[in-house]
Design a protein around this nucleic acid. Structure first.
Length: 544
DNA sequence: TCGGAAAGCGCC
DNA sequence: AAAGGGCGCTTTCCGA
């Protein structure tokens, strides 16, 4: 059964639709009664259908209501609009409309006074949109892959809202302690003592008394005036120099970064009541990966992870999908030799053991090159060997690269399609310079599409992993979400669960079982192991 | 004075 | 040691 929610000027209209698609009943509910109404109906385990999870779900969570399933119409629409598999559907061939617009700015999810001043505009008809999507999926003829993708995308939206709701446990005291230890005590609008001392050492080493090390042009000039041949101030270039300034400069960069990106200001802005609550943006990256909006959640430096501390009596169970992208490539390309290497817990070691390459290092750089399109250095050198050892997998990514270079669209395993390449062709009137530029653009776009199919499929696997885990975690406890084991953090191929210590072992097992289930769901019988490393810890930084 | 671009660096 | 793909954030610079 489906329950479609729609905001109107007279209240929330809920339309019940049977699994066969028949409309049954329509109910009008006052905004304030919605959580209780949803909680009551949730007992029948409906699939909730709404335009944006980020709009409907946070108020429900705030009222203590958790739902099992949903359809996020806007996220699903975006997939169907672009997917090759649904290209001939009514949805994809229709003019662009409100469903193609980005989600409206989140209506201050934390605020209780939602629509005090003016009534919300009526939502576009979600029932009609749901039918359009159902028809597009049914006609895709792809063995159900798009349908699975839409379900995975939607459950991801639920997880994103739930993770923001529960937050990542964060020790302000520990964070402040580590900042003070590394930087010195906080100085409002100024450099803490240790950072200023480093700045002073830079000025001395470069004989530049007025140097502001935060200014790149200033710093570059000072380096050059000191006789150093550098073209930028970047760390990889500085590291190569032989000069007394190198050590303090690299340290300055590291500490300055800590201060500006994750210092006291960040702490005040993003951590409250012992929780870091970033905004996760499912589908925020073209490949299908999540993005984040504010707080830099997906770039949380290892430096500050010691401040991530569970509640008393609770633990973190941290799981990392090892070598996810190579495993995904083995499975989606159907490369048996690569799959065999992927049965090892350490896939790179597996490549050595099956005789494909000589060292683990070679395996790693070789795969990086295959997936990212590297042509130089170690990964370039490894390419012929990788091609010999895993011809099917390499042909798969090469085909994706060639398609991109031509301007063709490529798709992930479940059918998310890349944007079309633009400006990749030229005619005979083009000058040599124009031709060369176009070729460079085409090569770059080929690297993008090569990576797209792998990165995007890995993102699909991760969504399935999360969805499977979410269901298992919910069954492990009772009461509201915050009292059961729950997902608290996610970074592309890594999950962090916050759990009562007594359930930590059970959670660890669930993380492994969910990974295996995600592999089966996507790739069926392909004998690729999706190995996960799991650690039960009392600080995030203690996980590997 | 404001805002976008670029540099640089953190994460996967 | 970096390279190749994808991001977000902060600072400074520079032009409108």
């Amino acid at each position: 059964m489906l329950l479609v929610l729609r905001a109107t000027a007279r209240g929330v209209v809920a339309t019940e639709i049977s699994d066969e698609g028949e409309e049954r009943a329509e109910t009008v509910i006052a905004e304030s009664d919605l959580p209780a109404w949803v909680a009551e109906r949730e007992r029948a385990r409906p699939r909730w259908v709404w335009n944006d999870t980020a709009r409907w779900y946070p108020p429900l969570l705030a009222a203590g209501v958790r739902v099992e399933r949903c359809v996020d119409l806007r996220l699903c629409h975006a997939i169907l609009r672009n997917a090759i598999a649904s290209a001939s559907s009514a949805l994809a061939t229709a003019e662009r409309d409100g469903w193609d617009a980005p989600a409206p700015v989140r209506a201050a999810a934390a605020s209780d006074a939602l629509f005090d001043l003016e009534p919300p505009p009526d939502d576009d008809d979600p029932v009609a949109e749901w039918r359009r999507q159902r028809d597009a999926v049914a006609a895709a003829g792809d063995g159900g892959r798009l349908g699975l993708l839409l379900a995975a995308e939607s459950v991801g939206a639920l997880v994103a809202a739930e993770m923001r709701h529960v937050g990542l446990p964060w020790s302000v005291a520990e964070h402040d302690r580590l900042l003070t230890e590394h930087l010195g005590p906080r100085i409002p609008n100024g450099r803490p003592a240790k950072l200023e001392a480093l700045a002073e050492r830079l000025r001395e080493a470069l004989d530049a008394p007025a140097l502001n090390p935060d200014s790149q042009p200033d710093l570059l000039r000072a380096l050059q005036n000191a006789g150093l041949r550098v073209e930028s101030t970047s760390k990889w270039e500085v590291r190569e120099l032989d000069h007394p300034v190198v050590e303090p400069l690299l340290e300055y960069k590291t500490l300055s970064r800590l201060l500006t990106a994750n210092g006291w200001h960040w702490l005040e802005e993003w951590v409250s009541e012992g929780r870091f609550r970033p905004v996760y943006v499912p589908g925020g990256v073209v490949t299908g990966r999540w993005a984040s909006d504010g707080g830099g959640a997906l770039q949380l430096p290892k430096q500050v992870r010691s401040a991530v501390v569970p509640d008393p009596g609770w633990r973190f169970v941290v799981a990392d999908a090892s070598q996810l992208e190579p495993r995904v490539l083995a499975a989606m390309s159907g490369d048996r030799a690569m799959a065999r290497a992927g049965q090892a817990t350490d896939m790179y070691q597996g490549m050595v053991d099956t005789g494909a390459v000589e060292t683990r290092q070679q395996a790693k750089y070789g795969m990086l090159g295959a997936i990212y399109g590297g042509t130089t250095g170690e990964s370039g050198r490894m390419k012929p060997r990788i091609e010999r050892a895993f011809p099917v997998a390499m042909a798969y990514v090469e085909a994706a690269a060639r398609a991109g270079e031509r301007g063709d669209v490529v798709s992930t395993w479940l059918g998310r399609s890349s944007p079309p390449g633009e400006g990749l062709g030229y005619d005979e009137t083009a000058t040599d310079v124009q031709k060369r530029r176009t070729q460079q653009r085409a090569a770059a776009w080929g690297r993008f599409t090569r990576n797209f199919v792998v990165q995007g499929t890995a993102a699909e696997w991760a969504l399935c992993w999360m969805g499977s885990l979410r269901r298992r975690l919910w069954q492990m406890g009772s009461g509201p979400l915050t009292q059961r084991p729950h997902l608290a953090f996610f970074v592309h191929d890594e999950l962090l669960v916050h759990t009562p210590a007594t359930l930590a072992d059970e959670v660890a097992a669930a993380l492994r079982e969910s990974a295996a289930e995600a592999g089966r769901l996507l790739f069926g019988g392909m004998p690729v192991e999706f190995a996960v490393s799991v650690a039960i810890v009392e600080r995030y930084s203690d996980a590997k």
